[in-house]
């Protein structure tokens, strides 16, 4: 299929690096607190993965192992879940992660031009790639649920509405 969601997930092996445990100290305490909100530990899987991504920016194979450990699951099981959800990164991404909606409602309002402008202004060049300065990764995503405000984009946790190609430069400059 042409058009790439630029998924940051993939078959390949993610770079190996020393894994410093995520679930220690306050993060561990937060997780323990979560355990009280669900009847099973397994149910804390999505929240736990979010915690890893918050702490590390992405979810490495070793982090998957750690999550499996603390939730009493197997790494393979956790990996199957991680790869199901497109918001979890199984590879490192740029300092700022940009998601642009290009589904039909936004598409008919010019979303593809916003993508082009973003790829150019960030220097990423292509979807899913990280800019040479390490600042950005841009991907296309499906409907962000803000179709009345085309084109919405997410830069990290900032939800920005009504983005047009003209506004892209200003937005990019806000993120260093």
């Amino acid at each position: 299929m042409s058009g790439s969601h630029g998924g940051t997930a993939g078959h390949g092996t993610a770079p190996a690096e020393e894994h410093i445990p995520v679930f220690t100290g306050p993060t561990r305490a937060r997780l323990e607190q979560l355990f009280t909100k669900y009847p099973t530990r397994q149910a804390c899987l999505l929240p736990a993965l979010w915690m890893v991504q918050e702490a590390r920016g992405w979810i490495s194979e070793q982090a998957i192992g750690e999550v499996a450990d603390v939730l009493e699951l197997t790494p393979a099981y956790v990996k199957g879940v991680v790869t199901f959800y497109t918001m979890y990164h199984t590879h490192p991404v740029g300092r700022h992660f940009v998601q642009v909606c290009t589904t039909s409602p936004c598409n008919i309002c010019g979303a593809e031009d916003v993508v082009k402008a973003l790829l150019q202004e960030t220097g990423c060049g292509e979807l899913g790639a990280t800019s040479p300065d390490g600042r950005f990764t841009v991907i296309e995503v499906e409907c962000l649920g803000a179709c009345g405000f085309p084109t919405p984009i997410l830069v990290d946790d900032d939800f920005i509405e009504n983005v047009t190609p003209e506004k892209v430069r200003g937005i990019v400059q806000r993120y260093q």
Binding site: G7, A9, H11, T13, E61, I64, G65, A68, L73, T74, P75, A76, Y77, V78, K79, G80, V81, T83, F84
Partner: peptide
Amino acid sequence: MEDVADTPVLNVSERGDRAYIGIAEQQ
């Protein structure tokens, strides 16, 4: 592996027509 052997070392990875049967590196 999951329901009979109670040792889930295989998974379905990804989704849509990109899906495949996966295993974790450490298993």
